[in-house]
Design a protein around this nucleic acid. Structure first.
Length: 268
DNA sequence: AGGTCGACCTGGCAGC
DNA sequence: TGCTGCCAGGTCGACC
């Protein structure tokens, strides 16, 4: 899925387009993406207006006028696009009373939509670690958490109970910026490396948000456009290409079942 | 008990 | 052209 910068970009786009608007009708073309019963889902939205749109980790919470929430988890290929043309991946269409429409598109159908009373009823929110821009995500927290673990630092960064919102792209990019080998045991991270991980995490994510995220294949922002950060990625999806610092080839390895890209020369 | 791995899905692409 | 195998931004639960 979209990771934090992509979901945050979508959140901001949706906020501009549909905050305070009222759901007129909801058309479901593929109930597989619903995690609420079809009838409850539709009736739970129609007639409600939108009070707020917030992001927690990689999830979007759309707060409704009745106090409930529409929870959107885009997973790998979900999109929320405003006023776009329907296609074969359009699973749900939200129509608003002012004729504006938002499409939920999802090629792989891993994404999930549901109506909830409170975030605390969803396990994901109960286990989610601190947001990267929060003050409780800091060098000391990172250092203390790494003491408890011997897993590779890359795997820890991907663990959403450690920090919310990081995914495979940004975990790779952050470690490159820190010049840290992704295989390095978390327990061997020093205090100053923990400080560096904190700083680079914030830097990389802010920069990625500024460029409206990274589009590999499917990600699109709220207006259906690609993000521009892909061209700025230094290691992710650059296997065998020259490192932008030392020119030696970027390597691809597998960690926890996912591809990791890194520069073996620069990242020790 | 922490950590890894397959399952959930569709489709694009490389290689033969 | 068509087939096969591999790969993809996430998350959960089963299993070791």
């Amino acid at each position: 899925m979209p990771e934090l910068p992509e979901v945050e970009t979508i959140r901001r786009d949706l906020e501009k387009a549909i905050l305070h608007k009222t759901f007129h009708c909801v058309e479901v073309y593929d109930p597989l993406v619903l995690r609420s019963p079809l009838k409850d889902f539709i009736q739970g939205l129609e007639g409600q207006s939108i009070k707020a749109i917030v992001r927690k980790g990689k999830a979007l919470l759309i707060q409704l006028s009745n106090g409930r929430y529409l929870l959107v988890q885009l997973m790998m290929t979900g999109q929320m696009v405003v006023d776009a043309k329907q296609d074969k991946h359009t699973r749900v269409v939200f129509k608003f009373t002012d004729d504006r429409r938002v499409l939920y598109n999802d090629q792989r159908r891993f994404g999930q939509l549901r109506i909830i009373k409170d975030p605390s009823e969803v396990k994901y929110f109960n286990v989610l670690g601190p947001e990267p821009f929060d003050k409780n995500f800091n060098a000391l927290y990172i250092f203390q958490q790494t003491r408890k673990s011997r897993r590779p630092i890359k795997n820890l960064l991907l663990d959403h109970t450690f920090v919310a919102g990081l995914g495979n792209i940004y975990a790779c990019e952050i470690l490159f910026c820190c010049r840290l080998n992704p295989k390095r045991s978390a327990g061997r991270i020093t205090r100053s490396q923990a400080q560096d991980i904190h700083e680079k995490t914030v830097d990389v994510l802010k920069e990625a948000i500024r460029y409206r995220g990274s589009s590999m294949r499917n990600y699109r922002d709220g207006s259906g456009q690609k993000g521009e950060f892909r061209q700025r990625l230094q290691v992710y999806a650059r296997g065998d290409k020259p490192c932008c610092v030392c020119l030696s080839p970027i390597r691809r390895i597998t960690q926890a079942g996912r591809s990791t890209f890194f520069c073996p020369q620069c990242q020790k």
